[in-house]
Each structure stands twice: as structure tokens, then as C-alpha cells.
Design a protein around this nucleic acid. Structure first.
Lengths: 230, 230
DNA sequence: CGTGGCCTTGATAAAGTTCAAGAGCCGTGG
DNA sequence: CCACGGCTCTTGAACTTTATCAAGGCCACG
């Protein structure tokens, strides 16, 4: 259990939580490992608790009848997933699948609820997490509805360049198929627009999933919704 | 102040909160009235607190460069708005505008934060509210990305028929222009698809903003993402 | 050296947008 | 009472963007 404690205490979600509570949690928590491609939960499943990712990445997505998928988020170490089912509605609102071999800790609903009632700073942390997600969703809706694919792709590339040490070199980290699902488009469309961007001198492909940003200003114009073609 | 107390105590958000706390809140709260069409806050504004709607309706929306709007939510009495800025990021993530002449109570950030720290049930209520919104966003993204306009419209009509006393008679309550912005499409497209639905015998127009559902099964097929044409 | 992933490219079709014009509705004022 | 102006909504036609279907290319791995 001591090994869980270490993980729990270092999660942003539990930042500021007294040591004893972290230890209590460590005793409740269940360690779960998922293979790459393995489903963690399905939309509609009853949620008896939530997961926090220890290692690996997890995609949260919706599926249409015809099997088309839209990725809502891609989460990594430290991120909680499925917590919505704990606080409202009881069942998971989407699918979750491991993108890599992953490890998670599972927090049973009732024990966690007790703890959150006892500890205001945990509640505040959780409120901050949920609020940030609402924010992310708002921009996702904005992108899907108000921007065309080039704009979405440009925004995503710029987003990557901010996290990956503000440089001009970016790494996609995910397959093009996944990226197209994240941007809400077909893989073919993504491919075409990426080559258009390359031909227009906005970016350069450095092989595999690595790209360089050549014309940041132009990308920013695209990302902000400028309809003007590449 | 006593008059605010009454409103506060009856809000779902404050359900279960001790009387004294409600009274404390009543002393802090600021009453604000907005005219129909008046902007309550803009995207990017600093959020020094949040609002709860007492009467009227408020739309939360994003705007593109070209002025196209996408409605994220339409909220009514009892709903909090702008709370995301309180818990994360400080600035409002979208625009808010009164759809009717409306009245709100404004809760200053710091006082509210203190209260939430002191009262776990308030925290739980807020977590439930945010979770429900995440859920709503997830279905909005699903609709925008995975369904076509007929599917979205069908889903919306069915949604209305559930709230408005499960009958076959529904009332749009908002203009077609607003509805098109909520569904993420152009007014012309909405108009065309609505007439298609009428011609196909799925719904009937009872004048103004009133409609009747004639073929619920077929609407449900459309809403669930069936591509088959009307 | 071939096989299977994953990505690209091309041709075609579908859905939605845009622009422009017209219809219906309603309150105002002559 | 009717005509006018201003709304909102509808309809039509051309155009864009994106999806879809179908090959073909590339590359890694056995």
C-alpha cells in the first residue's frame, strides 16, 4: 500500500491533502493495468468509481452508429478519468481506451465521496479539474462548429508547440488516424490539409511524427478562424 | 437582504446548505438585472464571481471572427453561469447574453470560495452541477461531430418533448435563428430540414413556435445517428 | 521478399453554406 | 382600416468543404 501512497501524494488532484488522508486512500485504491488498445470502460457502464492514470495515455471518445469515433480528450499521467459518473448520473458518458500500455489507480465512489466531504481542499482541487475540462470542451465545440479543418489543425499544432518547450519542433505523439478523430475529420482530409500546409511553407515534416513550424504567424491566422485559404 | 435569502435558499445549487450560510450569502450577493439582448459578460473578461439566474433565460455562446455564433448552453432560473472562471482560469470562457429581460444574483468569488471550503454539501452540489455540464458538453460534441443536422434537430425535438410534459406537443421557446445557432448550423439549413421533416410526416407545425410530434420512432432513428434520409 | 499497417492521392458525391430574393407576419401610423 | 416598414423565416441556385470509395505507396517486421 505504501507504494500507492507515493503515487497518490504526488497527484495534482490530491495536492494539499493531509498525509493521513492520502494513506487512507492508499488503502482503498485498486491498482489496474490495461493493455494498449484495451477498453477501460464503455459509455453507459455504471460507474462505481473513477480512475487516475499513473502511466500511459488514455483516450476518451464517443462512437456513432456507423462506428465513426470522435475523441473528446487524451489524458495522461495524473489525470482522473470517469469522475463525472461519480458526481452525476452514475454511468460513464463516453468510452475510455488505453492508447499505450497503462497503469491506473481506481478510486471507489463512496470512499472518495466521504473523503471529499471531509476535506475542502480536495473538493477545490476537483472543482478546478472539472472547470478546466469545461473550458477545454468549450474550445472543442468552438473548433468543431466555428472553424474548418485547417483552422483546427493549425490550432492543434500551435497547442503542441506550447507544451513541448515553446520551440518550433513538435511531436504528434499519436497516429494520424487518432489525430483526425481528435480534430473531428476523416484521415484522408487530415492528410490532404497537412500536405497543403507543407506545400504552403507553414510547416515542415521532419519524418515520422515530428514536424517543425515554419510560419507561426500564418498558422495563428488560420487557427483564429481566418477563412483565407492556405 | 431577506428577499435574497429566499431566492438563495430555493436554488438547487444551495440545497442542503444551513440556513445561516444562506443568510450570510444573502448579505454578500449583488442583485443584477439585464435587458433582453444585453451582454452579461464577454469571453476573456476577468471573472470576479459568478451569477445565478433568478428569472429569464441566458445564452452562453462562442463567436467566430466572421461573427458566426455557436450557442453552448441556454440556461434558466436556478442555473449558475460563469462559475468556471471562479474555479479555474479566472476569465470567462465564452459570452453570456440575456435572451429575455432577466434577473440574476452575483456571487463574489472570494466569499463564495470561503463558503465552499466551510461547507462540503455546497461543494458536492457544485461538483454535481459541473459534472452535469460536462455530460451535456459531451453530447453536444457528439452531435456536432457524429450527427448531421437532421439528427441533431430530431434529438432536440425529442429532448423538448421530454421536458415539456412528455407529450407530443412541443414549444421551441426560442427563435429559429437561435435554434440554428444551438444546433451548429445556418438558419437556412434548419428551415429546409424542418420543412423536409414536415413533408415526411415526422412533425406538424401548429403555428408560431409550436410543433407536434407525429412519428416519434422515426425521429428517434434520426436522432440516434441513422444516416438514412428523411 | 512479401505482407500488413498506416498513410497518401485521386475521383466522385454528399451535406451544408452563402448570397440573393421573396413570403408571411405584425405593429404603427396615416 | 389599410398600407407601410421592419422583422423573421423560407426558398432557390451556385459554390465550398468535407466525406467516401478505391487505389496505390511506403516502410517495418517477420
Amino acid at each position: 500500500m505504501a507504494i500507492f501512497y507515493h503515487h497518490i501524494a504526488s497527484m495534482p488532484l490530491f495536492h494539499g491533502l493531509p498525509t493521513q488522508y492520502c494513506k487512507d486512500l492508499a488503502a482503498l485504491v485498486v491498482d489496474q493495468v490495461f493493455r494498449q488498445g484495451q477498453l477501460i470502460f464503455s459509455e453507459g457502464d455504471e460507474g462505481t468509481g473513477f480512475y487516475v492514470i499513473i502511466s500511459g495515455r488514455v483516450k476518451i471518445f464517443k462512437l456513432s452508429l456507423e462506428g465513426k469515433e470522435q475523441i473528446l480528450h487524451i489524458f495522461g499521467p495524473g489525470d482522473p478519468i470517469g469522475e463525472v459518473a461519480v458526481f452525476a448520473g452514475k454511468h460513464f458518458p463516453a468510452y475510455a481506451e488505453a492508447l499505450d500500455d497503462s497503469r491506473t489507480l481506481f478510486f471507489p465512489r463512496d470512499a472518495f465521496m466521504d473523503l471529499i466531504r471531509k476535506n475542502p481542499s480536495l473538493a477545490m482541487n476537483m472543482l478546478a479539474v472539472l472547470s478546466q475540462r469545461l473550458r477545454k470542451f468549450a474550445t472543442l465545440v468552438e473548433d468543431l462548429s466555428l472553424k474548418e479543418v485547417p483552422g483546427r489543425l493549425a490550432a492543434y499544432l500551435l497547442y503542441l508547440s506550447k507544451t513541448d518547450q515553446d520551440s518550433k519542433n513538435i511531436n504528434l505523439d499519436i497516429s494520424k488516424a487518432q489525430l483526425s478523430s481528435l480534430l473531428g475529420t476523416a484521415p484522408e482530409t487530415l492528410s490532404r490539409i497537412l500536405t497543403r500546409m507543407i506545400k504552403a511553407g507553414l510547416v515542415r515534416s521532419d519524418g515520422l511524427r515530428s514536424y517543425s513550424i515554419l510560419d507561426r504567424a500564418e498558422l495563428e491566422r488560420l487557427a483564429s478562424g481566418d477563412r483565407r485559404l492556405l
